[in-house]
Amino acid sequence: MHFENDLYYIEKTLAGDRHAFGQLIQKHQNYAYTLAYRILKNSEEAEEATQDSFMKVYDSLKKFERKSKFTTWLYKIVYHEALGRLRKMKNIMIDIDEVTDLKLPVDDFSNGLELLHLQERKDLIKNALDGLKATESAVLTLFYLEEQSIKEIEVITELSESHIKILLHRGRKNMLISLQKFTKKEISHLL
């Protein structure tokens, strides 16, 4: 689906067009959910955090000052909503089977083996991200998957640039360790 730029939908929403806000949600819901999931590590909680975040966005859209990109403002709301929920949660249960898969068209792959390899890589990365601390996982998700700059992540998380760089460094290091352990375990099962 082709989407217009965010300001187009914002202007139409502010003029009373609820369908335009629905388009804005469709455009950003997967990224918002991914960020919430990386923090909460629970799909139901992440879905609720995402929905609540979009409600907050709708209620305060008039306050969006356009000093930053809309996505930066949105991710800040999602980030803080998810952190608030994380603080309230007493027991965090991670069920890897609950992780929603990306819907990729089969036509884009030359054969089923390529699709299988892509899915295996995706699963490895998800498992490694799930094993990280919530802040490391969130910062890695924002930087690599959402392609946010360090400055944008500063705005979203309200962490200092140096702290974000430390989290990125530690997150990459911990993710590599996790991937190495997981692949050694998988290889040993094959032997």
Rank of each mutant, 00 (worst) to 15 (best):
N42E: 02
E11M: 09
K27W: 02
N5M: 04
F70D: 09
Y144P: 01
M89K: 03
L104S: 05
H19A: 14
G84D: 02
T183L: 07
K184T: 01
L190E: 08
R170L: 10
H117V: 15
L116K: 15
G112M: 11
S149F: 02
Y144C: 08
I77T: 06
Y58T: 01
E158P: 07
Q180K: 15
M175W: 00
L118Q: 01
H117C: 02
T50C: 05
Y8L: 07
D101S: 13
H169K: 13
T157A: 06
T100S: 12
H19W: 15
Q23I: 14
D97V: 10
T34W: 04
R85V: 05
T100H: 13
A32G: 05
D6Y: 00
L179Q: 01
K41I: 02
D95V: 14
E44D: 03
D123A: 05
G171V: 02
K67P: 01
I156M: 07
E158R: 15
A32W: 03
R170F: 12
G22Y: 04
S68C: 10
K173S: 01
F54S: 07
E154Y: 05
E147W: 13
I164L: 04
E136K: 04
E48T: 13
I166P: 00
N174D: 00
A134Q: 04
F3V: 05
S178E: 11
E11F: 09
I94C: 00
V78E: 00
L124K: 06
F70H: 00
